[in-house]
Design a protein around this nucleic acid. Structure first.
Length: 600
RNA sequence: GGCCCCGUAGUUCAAUGGAUAGAAUAGAAGUUUCCUAAACUUUAGAUGCAAGUUCGAUUCUUGCCGGGGCUACCA
């Protein structure tokens, strides 16, 4: 992976060559690769060469080998100043001038760390993909934030990206809300009720469930077997009938469906806007649920699938350690898998430059996607190799799983406004905002509240499940979004106060404070961190990075005077350095969709 | 039963096979005549258990124990 102006990488390349040279000239042996790592804080040095792996090629005592190589590097590499060897670790001290050269090469540069789009191939990132029968909850928030962030990270890593979602706007669950509204709604609308559209529809989904359960209990008390009662409760039968009518295109049913879905979309749009996520292309399941059947026919010809006696079509994946999986029902209708096969192909037809897709879907569907990807591969699509299931853990409450039907969910809209309120409370207590208008303050509370929420979710490894306790609100101190935003605001304050900043190159002879050097080392890691986050589809890596940077900066800020420095050259450099740190914070947070404030 | 994911301080999170396992919170103790104390500094506290591979294992392998998930002609 070529790195944009990776001066460190160049240094590492030089060092790699020189280490090999050293091994060659001292031991007459060929070293395949040299292993480097940043020197740990407790030791003196900047870059560490790990000696242990060399023992395969060179026999001897690791400390002696390290020392000999260190000597060689010191005399043959200008950037290497001192060195020391601890156990099998050769710690190299890199000259200040090297880091200052690096700084000069990037300090005026916008979008440091981001790659220019350099790939002809595009990646489609799917996320959100809600059902249209209930409002979004905390689980969707995780999904949205992850999908959005991974899309932005991929862009920053130089990929072209299309963000998309497939809206599950049809099916029995939608009919349930529709039916309940018909039965109990008395014509209620978002306008008449004052409820957000998605919340109104969700209310009837819950109503349905209540009424349905009551019916089942009644039937059971009349002596009917529970399983039968659950299958034959009149409400359910009616909902199924409604689905049949919908599929047959019954005008009245379709009109009701359009109307209620319209309410939901309005509600979703508000939530998406509040959350700051967006999409380039929407797919609706009502348009795609019939897709995929021709492909199955095709696959039958090719022998990828086989037909059972009853006419249903299957794929046998037992050779891959998986099961047999149905891809078409006996009556010829599509199942979930059929649809997903069809939709994937449809997307590539719509956007021919797609070569890779990311599906942001919970880990409960790990198996489904494993099978889906395998099927597409067997069908011979070249892009099937580049499909990725961005699988994430559920967000659970202390009481267990969130269940919409039982009302045990943390509602997305509620949570967002709670976060804003908390931000407002803390802000007012601290009272640092004189001169801000009401609107500016409100905007700031939103920035901070959302920053706290987004960072809280995104800093966790996607694979891990999150236990969310609504009683303990999301923190605003420590390793949090507001902590990082605060550091940014402090930097902006310095920049406002600093006069006569010269943007010209910094003299490389000024000599660095240890804290300055640490900051430069950390800044230097930004481009490769973005790449790594993209390769691993992991916003958490960016979070760890920016947190380390900010901690380092705060420590620097505390120990080193910036504006109070008398030496003008140093003062100028420190202001520029602070500015750059601020830019990296801003650009890293942009990958999360988190804004940074000028003051807070 | 089969398959998949996860077990790290009281709690929430880190650690491309590398050094003395890092932070944050909660606890204890400090720092505002000084660029914003949502900060900084100090302190105490953890790898579920048992083997194996390795110079070296939180990381890889196997077994066990715990938690979650999938195993639908639902989506």
């Amino acid at each position: 992976m070529p790195l944009e102006n990776g001066i460190l990488m160049e240094l590492q390349k030089i060092l790699e060559e020189k280490v090999k040279e050293a091994v060659k000239s001292i031991y007459s042996a060929d070293l395949p690769t040299a292993e480097f790592q940043p020197t740990r804080k407790d030791f003196e040095g900047d870059v560490t060469v790990v000696v242990f792996p060399m023992l395969k090629v060179v026999k001897g005592n690791p400390v002696e080998i390290g020392t000999q190589i260190g000597d060689f590097l010191q005399t043959n590499v200008a950037e290497v100043g001192k060195f020391n060897v601890v156990k099998g670790f050769l710690n190299l001290v890199v000259a200040d001038s090297y880091y200052l050269d690096f700084f000069n090469s990037i300090h005026g540069k916008q979008n440091f760390g981001y790659q220019e789009p350099n790939s002809k191939d595009a990646i489609m990132v799917e996320y959100s993909s809600p059902n249209t029968n209930k409002p979004l909850h905390l689980g969707h928030i995780r999904n949205n934030l992850l999908g959005y962030s991974v899309a932005e990270i991929l862009k920053a890593a130089g990929h072209k990206v299309y963000k998309t979602q497939i809206i599950n706007d049809r099916g029995i669950h939608i009919c349930k809300s529709m039916l309940a509204w018909q039965l109990f709604g008395e014509g209620e609308t978002p306008e008449s009720s004052g409820l957000k559209g998605d919340h109104l529809v969700g209310k009837y989904y819950v109503e349905f469930d209540k009424a349905y359960k009551a019916q089942v209990e009644n039937l059971v008390s009349e002596g009917i077997d529970r399983k039968t009662a659950e299958k034959e409760a009149p409400l359910l039968v009616e909902a199924q009938e409604m689905l049949r009518k919908w599929e047959a295109g019954d005008p009245e049913t379709v009109a009701l469906w359009k109307n209620m879905n319209g309410w939901v979309y309005e509600g979703f749009d508000t939530t998406y806007k509040n959350l700051g996520v967006d999409f380039d292309k929407l797919y609706y399941e009502s348009d795609t649920y019939l897709l995929g059947r021709e492909v199955v026919e095709d696959g039958l010809q090719k022998g990828v699938f086989y037909k059972k006696g009853d006419g249903s079509v299957w794929i046998d994946l037992t050779d891959e350690g998986l099961d047999e999986k149905i891809v078409l029902r006996a009556d010829g209708t599509a199942v979930y898998m059929t649809q997903d096969i069809g939709t994937a192909i449809q997307r590539v037809n719509d956007f021919p430059d797609i070569n890779g897709m990311v599906y942001t879907v919970g880990n409960e569907q790990d198996y489904h996607f494993k099978v889906l990807f395998l099927i597409l591969k067997k069908l011979g699509y070249s892009w099937a190799e580049k499909l990725y299931h961005l699988s994430y853990g559920m967000v659970d409450l202390p009481s267990g799983k969130m269940k919409s039907r039982e009302g045990t969910v943390v509602d997305a809209d509620d949570l967002i406004s709670n976060m804003e309120e908390t931000a407002a409370e803390i802000s007012q207590e601290l009272g640092k905002l004189e001169g801000y208008s009401k609107e500016e303050k409100q905007q700031l509370y939103r920035t901070i509240g959302l920053g706290a929420l987004k960072y809280y979710i995104l800093k966790v490894d996607p694979k891990k499940r999150i236990l969310f306790n609504p009683e303990e609100s999301v923190d605003f101190q420590g390793n949090t979004g507001p902590f990082i935003q605060y550091t940014y605001a402090r930097i902006q304050s310095i920049l406002r106060k600093a006069n006569n900043v010269r943007l010209s190159a910094v003299e490389t002879s000024i000599g660095l404070h240890q804290k300055e050097k640490e900051l430069l080392k950390q800044i230097q890691l930004f481009p490769e961190t973005v790449q790594l986050a993209a390769e691993n589809y992991s916003p958490a890596l960016i979070a760890n990075y920016v947190y380390d940077l900010v901690k380092e900066f705060n420590s620097f800020y505390q120990q080193v005077s910036i504006l109070g420095e008398e030496d003008k050259t140093k003062r100028n450099f420190r202001v520029l350095l602070s500015k750059k740190v601020g830019e990296v914070i801003r650009d890293a947070f942009r990958l999360f969709g988190i804004d940074v404030p000028e003051r807070m």
